[in-house]
Amino acid sequence: MTESNTDTTTDLAPHHSFFSRLYTGTGAFEVVGRRRLFYIITAVIMLISLLSIAVRGFTLGIDFEGGSKISFPAAENVTTEQVETVYSDTLGMEPVSVQTVGSGSSATIQIRSEELNLAQVNQLSDALYNEFQPKDSEGNPSRNEISTSDVSSTWGSQVTKKALIALAVFLVLVSIYITIRYERDMALAALAALIFDLVVTAGLYSLVGLEVTPATVIGLLTILGFSLYDSVVVFDKVEENTRGVLHLNKRTYGEQANLALNQTLMRSINTTVIGILPVIGLMVVAVWLLGVGTLKDLALVQLVGMIVGAYSSIFFATLLLVSIKERWGPVAAHTKKVLSRREQGRSGVARPAAAGSGAAPAARSARTATATVERPDREPRTGAPRPGSRPTGKRQKKRH
């Protein structure tokens, strides 16, 4: 009968779906408690990125390496393979890259090559005009539709230098703000997450072989703001949940931080998804409609950076904050105290009764163990009287 009632009660208990618990923040997903696993994952990602940067390097754009760029309107049947054949047959060498930008009537063939002299440019332009007959806006073949430009590598290096200066200033200002608004440990965790975002985003560009342009460097700066925003949102909830935690004996700092992660997890996911959608729209407009390479490079680095930033704010920044806190200081002492009390409570439940003891001592032991489980914040009662307590009547009678 009891089992039937228990089964009925279990069946009637409300079952919340995964997404419901995720949205309400009641999922109790253990993130901080498994931080060693996430540290390993983060370290592997970081190591792969650094190795790729050191071994493969980057595919630098023409703005960094310098060279010549030739472009002309693409006819319907023109392919990049045909353009590469004309280039190699005319100049006797291979181009660096040939790509089609845009689609339909606005499609353009762009050739990137080593720096060409004037004679080579004229020779290549004549060959491209004779082979593909590029047309102007009125539909007439025109040699003027073939444009050439020389790019110096100095401009790209200047952009990179200014970007690095801006990055250093940004990191200093962020550190000062978070230290004043929150505390030093949060500033260290946020800076570590920002460095992780930069290295992993750059490592992905190196690993996949994506071209690095000045727009990519500028895009790296834009993703730092998003990553910092997501981390600050979680830190704000951590600060709220851990306020006064040192005066309590039921939960540790790490457990309260894990609760904050659960409460802000859906917010982080929503922010990332909402931020990614416009970036994807920008990539669609840049690549298929307008054919603007700068917009494509800017949108691509933002897309990668937002995904990496969402990961670091949830699975790295807060976990690192907890590890720093539990390494030394009052939070470390409080965590040891709470865990020690819990261990005492568990040992009180599991301790067997002594051999030859009567029913009354066994009952007292059971009551003591139950009280210890129900109130883990209190010390377990023992046979010794509390300090300052007065003797009972039975003890007084024995004295007389």
Rank of each mutant, 00 (worst) to 15 (best):
E3I: 07
T6E: 13
D7T: 14
T10N: 11
T10C: 01
L12C: 07
S17A: 10
S20G: 07
T24P: 06
G25L: 05
T26V: 08
A28K: 13
F29N: 07
V31P: 09
R36F: 12
I40H: 08
I41D: 05
T42F: 03
S49D: 06
R56D: 12
L60N: 13
G61F: 02
I62F: 01
D63L: 01
G67R: 01
K69Q: 12
I70D: 00
S71N: 05
F72L: 01
T79H: 13
Q82H: 04
E84W: 01
S88V: 05
D89K: 12
T90H: 00
L91E: 02
G92P: 09
E94K: 13
P95C: 04
P95V: 02
Q99P: 00
V101H: 08
S103P: 05
S105I: 08
A107E: 12
I109C: 02
Q110T: 10
E114I: 04
L124C: 00
S125E: 03
D126Y: 03
Y129V: 01
D136P: 11
S137E: 15
S142R: 04
E145F: 02
D150W: 04
D150L: 02
V151G: 03
K162W: 11
A163G: 12
L167G: 04
A168D: 08
A168Y: 08
L171I: 15
V172T: 06
S175R: 04
S175I: 13
I176Q: 10
Y177L: 06
R181P: 01
L188D: 03
L194D: 01
F196C: 01
F196Y: 12
D197S: 13
V199I: 15
L204T: 03
L207D: 03
L210T: 04
I218H: 07
I218C: 12
G219D: 12
F226V: 12
L228A: 03
D230I: 05
E240T: 09
G244N: 14
L248T: 15
N249Q: 15
T252E: 09
L259M: 12
N270M: 09
I280T: 07
G281L: 08
L282S: 08
M283V: 05
M283S: 09
V285L: 15
V285D: 04
A299R: 11
V301W: 10
Q302T: 13
G305M: 07
M306Q: 03
V308K: 02
G309C: 06
G309N: 08
A310G: 06
Y311G: 10
I314N: 12
F315H: 06
F316P: 03
T318Q: 09
S323P: 02
E326M: 05
R327G: 07
A333C: 03
R342D: 03
A353S: 14
S357H: 11
S357T: 15
S365C: 00
E379H: 10
G383Q: 14
A384S: 15
A384Y: 11
S389A: 14
Q396A: 12
R399E: 10
